[in-house]
């Protein structure tokens, strides 16, 4: 019994024949009701994985299941249960929104009796009831994206697969699309790829990071940012008027501080330190008092530092792509 595992990926491998697999032995499960963020630099294999899950491409080795159906040998059954929005929202520009949705309903085999009610609901959910008569080619990118989403959720799929659903949109549109994804994610299993890290923290209940075709992290956003690892990091900035006292020495003597190091900031008078303290202890009060009592030292800044998802992302994806010619995040293109 698969109980509530909606997507099961086992040792998936895809080699386009270049000798360097685009997807290299990836395994993960997604449960019903999870919103999974699929993170990775461009060219990491996100799109390839999604194309295999939607049966567009076949894996070189390994297998994948959606809702209990093998995406290769039971492809039609799996596809019936998937809603998919590929990268760049490919739609027929010469059709009106309504014509297009009717076409999708035809191909998806939506029963005529419930079709109109369902269409009305979807159109409202993605916010396009006033655009139905317009040609898709005349819509703005944000609206096209909504039509793409409408197309993907029209048949009430159990699994929704979205490839960079917010790329190229303005911040307002991104917020709106995210809202729609969140809403859908309450009932359905959603897997979406992105390289915008804030998006993951805002929408996902779970994150998978892949780099260079390999799975490098899998967990909740909180787990990945290390909020549960038990240490506390604080950034301290001090203005130094005289060299009588070294602030570093003073900070190290504060109760609960495990380590402190200088962070170069390029200023002659100010110095920045990264201070790590024991978990559960907030050293900020003590540090402030120590600095304040010393002549010639002024406290400028005292900020708690949390390992951001971005830092985690950079750390995980830089080491494994260091050997390749691609810089993570900066690499242009995609799949």
């Amino acid at each position: 019994m698969t109980d509530n595992v909606m997507i099961r990926v086992e040792h998936l491998l895809k080699d386009y024949g270049t000798g360097r697999p685009a997807v290299n032995d990836i395994s993960f499960d997604v449960r019903a009701g999870e919103v999974l963020g699929f993170l990775g630099p461009n060219g990491a294999g996100k799109t390839t994985t999604m194309k295999i899950l939607t049966s567009f491409l076949a894996p070189t080795a390994g297998r994948a299941e959606v809702a209990g159906y093998d995406v290769y040998s039971q492809s039609l059954e799996a596809r019936r249960r998937i809603g998919y929005l590929p990268e760049d929202t490919p739609l027929y520009h010469d059709m009106t929104v309504l014509e297009y949705l009717h076409f999708v309903a035809d191909v998806r085999g939506l029963p005529k009796s419930s079709r109109n009610a369902r269409m009305k609901r979807v159109v409202e959910q993605v916010g396009i009831p006033d655009r139905l008569g317009m040609l898709i080619g005349e819509l703005s990118k944000g609206y096209r994206q909504r039509v793409g989403l409408a197309q993907a959720i029209l048949h009430e799929p159990e699994v929704l697969i979205l490839d960079e659903p917010t790329s190229g949109l303005d911040p307002n549109q991104i917020a709106e699309i995210r809202q729609v994804i969140k809403e859908i994610g309450r009932e359905k299993t959603v897997i979406f790829s992105t390289h915008i890290l804030g998006e993951v923290q805002a929408t996902c209940s779970r994150v998978i990071i892949i780099s260079d075709g390999k799975l490098v992290a899998d967990g909740t956003p909180d787990e990945l940012t290390g909020r549960k690892t038990g240490t506390n990091t604080v950034l301290v900035e001090v203005a130094v008027a005289s060299n009588k006292h070294d602030p570093l020495e003073l900070i190290r003597r504060v109760d609960g501080v495990l380590a402190a190091e200088l962070v170069p900031v390029g200023s002659a008078t100010a110095r920045m330190y990264r201070v790590t303290a024991e978990g559960g202890q907030d050293p900020r009060g003590d540090i402030a008092r120590v600095i304040a009592t010393v002549d010639g030292l002024d406290l400028l800044q005292l900020t708690p530092e949390r390992a951001s998802l971005e830092a985690v992302f950079r750390r995980l994806t830089t080491t494994s792509t260091a050997s390749s010619d691609q810089a993570p995040l900066a690499a242009a293109g995609g799949m």
Binding site: K51, T54, S55, F56, L76, R79, R80, I82, Y84, P86, D88, P90, L91, Y92, H93, V104, V107, R108, G109, Q151
Partner: peptide, 14 residues
């Protein structure tokens, strides 16, 4: 060219 083929072929249609 438009990429719509991908969307079409990932629908439940042979």
């Amino acid at each position: 060219a438009q990429g719509t083929l991908e969307l079409l072929l990932t629908m439940p249609i042979t």
